[in-house]
Design a protein around this nucleic acid. Structure first.
Lengths: 133, 133
DNA sequence: TTTGGTGCAAAGGCTTTGCAGAAAG
DNA sequence: CTTTCTGCAAAGCCTTTGCACCAAA
């Protein structure tokens, strides 16, 4: 019983989800557009945006609101943390166990109803560390 | 010894910084434009963007890359955490002590050089909790 | 057949930028 | 006087949307 109405299974959605789940690179909408275009040359960027949005609403994928200008997407919908390179924008998963107690701690210190949290690290990826800049 | 070159003290910068430090609301660039315009009616939005960017580079203020489409700014440049309302976008400070050890933990699990981290909670603000929606 | 999805192209929202004149140092 | 900043307006980038046609169920 997913939130929102059911989505039809279209070729565009199947390929889009396939491609997203196949990579670990947290691609942007445009990255995915380029990837999917190899298989469906006539797909439009609008379709990519619409479907990423819908699949994220359904909880099939995750829309990451990480620093930087473009949104990124993750085929892994479970809570996990990320590291982002301040120089090149690369985003990796972080193998750090999600700490759900912080939400309780936070809840005690605010009048907001806490629904989720996000922990994001940033720094320099291996490539950018060896590139004096 | 701040990073970057020295900035001249212009009326625009003085008023902008004043206004930002006066509030606790984490305003967007446009919010600040509206606020500053009360005192400097001829200031331009471009100037607001340029100066927020420069002051953030200098470490005088903080540019928040919080979820949502617009960037927000914080007159408090020290590390601290935030809660954001998923319904209305309101952003509050959270009185939760910053945990710097997580950066060390993260560093052990990645080949990135970790420089900073950000913890952001989201949920419903008091107002939006009492508004069935 | 009905309902929702798609491609296309245009519009939208936020931010950045080029330039000529103004102001700080 | 020199260098940096400003206002203005245009451009840029990413994302969303209206519409007529198409496809899934």
């Amino acid at each position: 019983m997913e939130p929102g109405g059911e989505l039809r299974v279209t070729r565009q959605r199947r390929v889009l989800l396939d491609e997203l789940c196949k990579v670990t690179s947290h691609p942007t909408a445009d990255d995915l557009y380029q990837m999917v275009r190899q298989k469906l040359p006539r797909i439009s960027l609008g379709t990519v945006y619409r479907n990423l949005e819908l699949m994220a609403e359904q909880g099939m994928i995750q829309k990451l609101e990480i620093g930087g200008t473009q949104k990124r997407f993750d085929g892994n919908a479970d809570l996990h943390y990320h590291v982002r390179c301040l120089n090149c924008g690369r985003v990796d998963d972080l193998d750090l166990p999600p700490d759900c107690r912080v939400e309780q701690e936070a809840a005690q210190r605010t009048s907001f109803k806490i629904l989720r949290h996000r922990l994001e690290f940033s720094g320099l990826c291996p490539d950018c560390q060896n590139m004096d800049s």
